[in-house]
Amino acid sequence: MAVEDKLKIELGKQGVFVTTVNEIYNWGRKNSVWPLQFGLACCAIEMIATTMARYDLARFGAEVFRPSPRQADLMIISGTITKKMAPQVVRLYNQMAEPRYVIAMGACAISGGPFKQGYNVLKGIDRYIPVDVHIPGCPPRPEALIHAFMTLQAKIDAQPLTGTERPRHLDAAAMSEFPVPTQGAHDLEPPANRLVWPLPAPVASGENCG
C-alpha cells in the first residue's frame, strides 16, 4: 500500500484524493461480478429471490446472471450436489473465465446437509473446487446470500495484484484446470481433489460411503 489509510483520510479532508492501480482494479472487479445462472436445488429459489426487486442484487452490480460459463466469474452453488451432477459442476467451473469465485450456498453445498447420508450426495463441493464463501442455512435467506456476496466483495477488494497472495489469474504458474471426477463403481473417482481438499481422506470408495 503506497499511502497509509490514515494519511489517505487526512488528505481526503483537505480535498486531495489518492488511489492506487490496485484499488481501482479491485474496485472495478468487485462491483461487476457476473454470477453464473445455475441453480441446483431449493436454494436456487432463494438465489432467484435475491436477484428480484425485493432484495435486488443489482445494488451490488451482480444482477447480470450469465447463461454461459464463459461470461461468468461467480458460481453460486445453490443446492444439493448429487454425485451425478458433480462432474458437470466441476466442468462448468473449469469453463468459467478467470478470475472466478465460488459461493457455496446452504448446508448441502457445504457438507451434503440433511442428505449427507445419501449414497448419491456429494458431501460438499469444496472437495473438488476451491470455495471462497460458505453460507450455512437450509436454505439461507436472501439476506444471507447478500451477506456472502458482500463478504466476497471484501475479499476481492483485499486481493493484492502482486506477490505470492495475488489471485490465480495473475499467476501464470497457478493451476487453472481442476480435474473432473468420473463415475466409479461405488463413488466418484477420485473421491476428492487432494489439492483443494487437504482435510482427512474421505472413506475409501466401496467400503462405507456414509
Binding site: 459442476v89 466442468r91 462448468l92 473449469n94 469453463q95 478467470e98 487453472s176 484446470e177
Partner: peptide
Amino acid sequence: PAKPNAIKNAIYECG
C-alpha cells in the same frame, strides 16, 4: 488474464 485449458476451450458449454 488468459488462462485457457482444454475444458475451457471445449465447444459445448453446458457442463
